[in-house]
């Protein structure tokens, strides 16, 4: 995934016993540096995934009505149940709509804001605007959902009040969760995308813009024809991050659920997996978790591979 850029010191022209001595102490050092993390990584990343896959291969079955339930090996049976399950389809459809709606807008608006900030001649306003746009990223997702929940509720919302004064009557809580949840996530994550794009724009040699300007290009042409194509790798990275975030969507819809009847307990795949676990159907939950991980991995690798090939041409 990343180029190997190690520049470890080379040992050359030493005699044999020295090498084995140095080797031994080097091995000890590497072990002490790597093992604590590696052990925890195996325990809290690799094992849970393995355990999840293992659990997904079993199901609780009863031999008769009065018999205790037993774990029975069912192979891929849970997966066949899951991919034919209407609730799972619905949750996937929800995140698909979310991906082509709010998630795509997060990248696009984040890019537009970065271009606007980058196009400024003064520095002070640019720095202040960047800070304001990025601030929501620090806000806990639960708090973001609580605050927007109040802003969606007609009785407590100055936004709904202002709209009413203009003759619109709004009831955001009755809108599709794709957009009520989507707005919270867009508010939180657009600034992060803007920051990625601004960092990439800062790395471009400014003499390119200078020569384009001398050739008569205006600010909009420079933004659209020069900056955006040069940002292509960052845009793909942003899309991958947003896609992963979309597939994992959990906290915002769960927190908003206390206010909105539009959000079901299994509205996203992650919520569905949690609901199944909460109902003690661990095998089903493990199956959904595993499927979610597979879908995430396939999408991320496909996108990264696709763009790597493009860049190679």
């Amino acid at each position: 995934m990343t180029p190997d850029i190690s520049t470890a010191p080379r040992r050359r022209g030493k005699t044999r016993p020295e090498i084995s001595d140095a080797e031994r102490s080097k091995r000890r050092t590497v072990a002490v540096l790597v093992l604590p993390f590696a052990v925890l990584f195996v325990a809290f990343y690799i094992l849970p995934i393995g355990y999840s896959v293992w659990q997904s291969l079993f199901a609780l079955r009863r031999a008769g009505a009065m018999q205790p339930a037993k774990q029975v090996f069912v192979g891929l049976g849970n997966y066949i149940d899951a991919v034919t399950d209407a609730a799972f389809h619905q949750s996937l459809l929800n995140v698909l709509l979310y991906a082509i709606g709010p998630s795509a807008l997060t990248v696009i608006i984040g890019l537009v804001i970065a271009l606007i900030i980058d196009g400024r001649t003064g520095k002070r306003v640019a720095v202040a605007a960047r800070a304001v746009v990025f601030a929501p990223f620090a806000v806990p997702a639960v708090v973001g959902a609580i605050v927007w929940g109040f802003l969606y509720t007609p009785e407590t919302s100055p936004v709904v009040d202002a709209a009413r004064a203009l003759g619109w009557s709004l009831d955001p809580l009755s809108w599709s969760p794709v957009w009520t949840v989507g707005n919270i996530a867009m508010w939180t994550y657009i600034g992060f995308n803007t920051l990625i794009f601004l960092a990439a724009l800062g790395a471009i040699d400014p003499s390119i813009f200078e020569s384009a300007r001398i050739d008569g290009a205006n600010a909009l042409q420079i933004a659209w024809k020069i900056k955006v194509p040069l940002l292509a790798p960052s845009i793909v990275l942003s899309i991958v991050f947003n896609l992963i975030g979309t597939l994992q969507l959990f906290t915002e819809p769960t927190a908003l659920r206390t206010l909105s009847n539009e959000i079901s307990s299994g509205w996203t795949p992650s919520m569905l997996a949690y609901a199944e676990a909460a109902a003690n159907r661990y095998n089903v939950s493990a199956t959904l978790s595993t499927l979610l991980a597979i879908i995430t991995a396939v999408f991320s690798f496909a996108l990264l591979r696709l763009t790597a090939r493009r860049a190679g041409q």
């Binding site: 809290f44 997996a273 978790s289």
Partner: peptide
């Protein structure tokens, strides 16, 4: 090792949290 750790960035939290609870 490095690539495995990097791939960890892509793992959905729900995929980890639920089996972690069982463990």
């Amino acid at each position: 090792l490095f690539n495995t750790i990097l791939a960890g960035v892509l793992v959905p939290p729900a995929t980890l949290a639920l089996p972690l609870f069982l463990m």
